[in-house]
Nucleic acid binder design. Structure first.
Length: 929
RNA sequence: GCCCGGGUGGCGGAAUUGGUAGACGCAGCAGACUCAAAAUCUGCCAUUCGCAAGGGUGUGAAGGUUCGAUUCCUUUCCCGGGCACCA
């Protein structure tokens, strides 16, 4: 009887489906555990070998937790709204719903073959009306909320209206942009005015704003979808455009998103990425008087201590204040500069960061402490969107200010003594201030507070905290997304009644943009026209559905609520979340914010969605680059299969073949120079000496992608070696968190291990070899050591070393010819999370029933057969000299006596008395003489 | 430029708290079984000196702390990732 993995795996997979083996209940006396994968976007290309890495790791952990007696929620679904399906629809005319369904079927098929323990009865699809009904509903809750900065939480908009009615908007609830008004003012406003003011407070709001407009995609992109001034998808240019857009007021949550990082278990680098994105900085706002004007110039600085070193001011060109302070003499120059700035795209601006441009406005500000006149400039290096859009420039302490001063010959004041060398700025805080009036002799870092206090006393400045993070754009001029449950009437946004949800996406025939940059829905008069007003034509962005899906899994079929409060209280936080780093600042921040809003409004009982996050590394594919020898013919004629495949990759991957599909010397030279490759970059691979030609090949690891012809499909591996081998091999490859190249070389070793395990039970010739004999203490030791090791390794996500431990165990059992059921069946239980099919099969073959996952072994609390004595290395002055046998008793062995009483040790001590004896627990005895 | 990671055999990687570096696997070499192949099994496998016993060196490089450092500290080089005019 041999290990027929194809038959075994197929049978068990069918059985699991037929018996709902992995269905999990919301009511259980067991403790809960929630293991979640980042759900996939069902792309047309299906899974490649990198995708399942995280799924396998989470599946192992979920099964392991179930073994340990937990009620484990381990669901899967699809993030099925999004741009690629719509892009595909534009090109082929196929409805996104159709292609999405097709892709989901492919994904499901591939996933099923790997033997996951997902509870498919809880599957969610974000594009399913039954799902997005609740995405829309949550949106309406966010729309109906504002952030109360005195209670530090979201509250219903009614509470804001009450405040307005009784006290207007006093400073504590004043929004930066809104004007002050009193209670009676409020009462005098008409409905439109009231709605406009409320819109300035809502957590989901609509406003005119500069958005990232991508002409080629015909849509608005979020900040994180724009990379270096071009779209992340497709690399199309992106420009700024003013449009009415929906936003989430995520900036109100900046502090809580920052603080929340302290209580979650994410990797330091991921937390750091989120902190950088939020970009909190502490400093001061300072008002400068303008010479000959009653206008004030407000700047933001983190270094108020350098105020005596301010040599000029810079405004962002977009700032309104500019028009009021520009001098008549400088008017023309300023106008020229402004038109220059307008002519430049964001892309150019980013590409030419080093280029220094600017223009003097003719105005001068006054230093409040020494009365010095400070010239006011405009320059595009100052961003209008951050701080006040104006800065005070201190060239001796800031590199950009220094470069600007040098470029325009502005004299530089040195306030840091010898810390400034005249050639470059020094941003130190450790200098003693000079030329700084009342601050002279003070340490800079101490002066920061002194200056702020003084400014506050003088009434011209205050402490201020700023964030880099902007509110998140929440609308897309696209079709394949959740429609907004909003109708516009007389310029005000009216929410739909929740009874009307879901507001279903209508069918369209054309997927092209609508009028005036609107989405495809703008072309549909039946959509726009309603008795109550004009319907919103934008749709929600890709991250809407994924911002709360982890809650829906808990209660997926509830049509009364997005998730019953009792159920979400039971499952609580996701205990373990596994996914890639690409969502570090997008999805992970948005879903954290949604969770906080739902918590504030009382719909759920926790305000951080994920307790622990593990980022799986990327599995890279191998790409091959070719050249052939200069000495021989102009064409490569390829016969071998392997070569033919590689040649094809080159051929289709790059356009460097001639009309006949052949790679020529000329075309290859062009390829080399285009790609900036040298002959020495390549390895010689095939010596086709019968023709006197070489082929040079360069191998590179890069992200798997269809366009690079380096995708490895998991199906092929499963076909050849089986799912269990595939699962264990992906783990064996290295730590889950590490990126590593895909390489099938080692897979044989893992496959051999499973065959060897099988042979402990069944021999090809002899048949059944397992026995009911009592195991020896030696055999139990092997087992118990393995149990302990696997438990440790699994717990700390060291799946690669766990696989090694299994191999060691099976080798040892085989060496000692141990075929005893009592040992082997415990090993099977232990193996189930890693290789579920073979474990289940053997478990049943040796006469057990029920699921091995529910095996009632007190496996992990076994009375270990422990060693009674152990060989310890003894080192003399750090040098290992000998091993001695020390009895392991309950208490720590009396090292001193053993060591001194041992003849071998005596010999090494050479009559010297030990100064110190160090007993390193379970490791070694060290004698210092 | 700034902020995170990381550099260990021919390769992937192990070493959990500072305690015998190189587990486990791949590849390679030698052998057993076989008519042969596959499968399986055994031995060797960082480097260097040596017939051997045994010794020297060795975790990117240079220093330091320690009885003892892949692990901690300082300096430096290289690779990967993120951010990037945020004042």
């Amino acid at each position: 009887m041999e290990y027929n993995f194809r038959k075994i795996e197929q049978e068990w997979q069918q059985k699991w489906i037929a018996t709902n083996a992995y269905k999990v209940n919301n009511e259980s006396a067991k403790p809960k555990f929630y293991v979640l994968d980042m759900f996939p976007y069902p792309s047309g290309t299906g899974l490649h070998v990198g995708h399942p890495l995280g799924y396998i790791a989470s599946d192992i952990y979920a099964r392991y937790k179930r073994l340990k007696g937990y009620n484990v929620l381990h669901p899967m679904g699809y993030d099925s709204f999004g741009l690629p399906a719509e892009q595909y629809a534009l090109e082929t005319g196929q409805h996104p719903a159709v292609t999405t369904e097709k892709n989901i079927a492919t994904f499901r098929n591939q996933l099923d073959r790997i033997g996951f323990s997902f509870d498919w009865s809880r599957e969610v699809k974000t594009s399913d009306p039954a799902y997005y009904k609740w995405t829309q509903w949550i949106f309406l809750q966010i729309f109906d909320s504002w952030y109360n900065h005195s209670t530090h939480q979201a509250e219903r908009i009614e509470t804001l209206i009450q405040i307005f009615e009784t006290e207007g908007n006093k400073s504590k609830i004043k929004n930066q942009k809104s004007k002050l008004f009193t209670a009676s003012d409020w009462k005098s406003f008409d409905e439109k005015e009231k709605q406009d003011i409320l819109m300035e407070y809502r957590l989901a709001y609509s406003a005119y704003g500069e958005v990232n407009w991508c002409e080629a995609l015909g849509t608005v992109l979020a900040n994180d979808e724009v990379v270096n001034g071009v779209s992340e998808r497709g690399g199309h240019p992106v420009i700024k455009k003013k449009m009415r857009q929906w936003y989430l007021r995520i900036t109100d949550y900046a502090d809580r998103l920052l603080e929340g990082l302290e209580k979650v278990d994410f990797s330091e680098s991921l937390k750091e990425q989120q902190r950088n994105w939020i970009g909190k900085s502490q400093g001061a706002e300072i008002d400068f008087a303008i010479n000959g004007s009653n206008q004030k110039l407000k700047v933001y600085t983190t270094r108020p201590d350098t105020i005596f070193g301010v040599d000029f001011m810079v405004l962002a060109p977009e700032l309104d204040l500019l028009n009021e302070i520009v001098s008549p003499e400088q008017r023309a120059a300023v106008d020229d500069y402004l038109s220059y700035v307008k002519s430049r795209s964001d892309r150019e601006r980013m590409a030419e960061v080093k280029q220094i441009t600017g223009c003097f406005t003719g105005a001068n500000a006054i230093n409040p402490f020494d009365g010095r006149a400070i010239p006011v400039w405009i320059a595009e290096y100052v961003l209008s969107g951050y701080g006040t859009g104006a800065i005070m420039a201190v060239p001796c302490g800031d590199e950009r200010d220094y470069n600007f001063a040098k470029h325009f010959n502005i004299p530089i004041t040195n306030i840091i003594g010898e810390f400034y060398n005249g050639n470059e700025a020094n941003p130190t805080k450790d200098a003693l201030l000079t030329q700084s009036g009342f601050l002279n002799g003070m340490l800079m870092r101490d002066a920061i507070d002194v200056v702020i206090t003084k400014l506050e006393q003088m009434g011209i400045g205050k402490r201020k905290i700023n964030f880099k993070m902007r509110d998140a754009g929440f609308s897309r001029q696209r079709y394949w997304g959740e429609p907004f449950p909003i109708v516009w009437k007389h310029g005000s946004a009216l929410p739909l009644d929740e009874k009307e949800l879901p507001l279903e996406l209508p069918h369209v025939d054309k997927y092209g943009p609508g009028p005036e940059g609107e989405g495809p829905l703008g072309n549909l008069s039946s959509w726009i026209t309603t008795p109550d007003g004009k319907r919103e034509t934008a749709t929600m962005p890709g991250y809407a559905g994924s911002s709360w899906y982890f809650l829906r899994y808990m209660d997926p079929h509830n049509n009364q609520a997005f998730c019953d409060r009792k159920v979400s209280d039971y499952w609580g936080q996701v205990d373990l979340y596994i996914g890639g780093t690409e969502h570090a600042v997008g999805h992970l921040l948005y879903s954290r914010m949604w969770t906080k809003v739902l918590f504030d409004l009382g719909y759920i009982g926790h305000d951080e969605p994920y307790k622990k996050l593990v980022n799986q590394g990327m599995i890279t594919g191998k790409s091959y680059f070719f050249m052939h020898d200069k000495a021989h013919a102009d064409t490569i004629v390829s016969y071998k299969k392997e070569e033919a495949t590689l040649l094809a990759r080159f051929k289709y991957g790059h356009n460097y073949v001639d009309a006949g599909g052949k790679l020529t010397k000329k075309s290859f030279d062009k390829y080399l120079s285009d790609q900036k490759y040298k002959t020495t970059d390549f390895d010689i691979r095939w010596d086709k000496d019968e023709e006197g030609a070489f082929i040079y090949v360069k191998e590179e690891s890069e992200k798997m992608s269809k366009s690079k012809f380096n995708v490895e499909n998991p199906d092929e591996i499963v076909d050849k070696y089986g799912a269990d081998t595939y699962r264990m091999y992906e783990m064996f490859l290295g730590p889950v968190e590490a990126s590593k190249p895909w390489d099938t070389k080692g897979i044989e070793g893992v496959h051999r291990f499973l065959k060897k395990l099988w042979r402990l039970f069944y021999d090809e010739i002899k048949g059944k070899v397992w026995t009911d004999d009592k195991p020896t203490a030696e055999e139990l030791k092997i087992l118990h050591r393995t149990i302990k090791k696997i438990e440790d390794d699994t717990e700390r996500f060291s799946f690669n070393t766990a696989v090694s431990s299994f191999m060691i165990c099976v080798n040892e059992l085989a060496d000692s010819k141990c075929h005893k059921k009592e040992v082997l069946e415990k090993l099977l239980v232990l193996l189930t999370p890693y290789a579920p099919h073979i474990a289940e099969e053997l478990w049943h073959l040796i006469g057990n029933s029920g699921s091995v996952l529910d095996a009632a072994y007190p496996l992990f609390d076994a009375n270990y057969v422990t060693e009674t004595s152990k060989e310890y290395p003894v080192s003399i002055n750090g040098k290992v000299r000998t091993n001695i046998n020390i009895a392991l008793e309950a208490a720590q062995p009396e090292v001193e006596q053993i060591v001194l009483g041992n003849e071998t040790v005596q010999k090494w001590l050479e009559g010297k008395a030990p100064k110190k004896i160090i007993y390193v627990k379970n490791k070694m005895v060290n004698v210092v003489v």
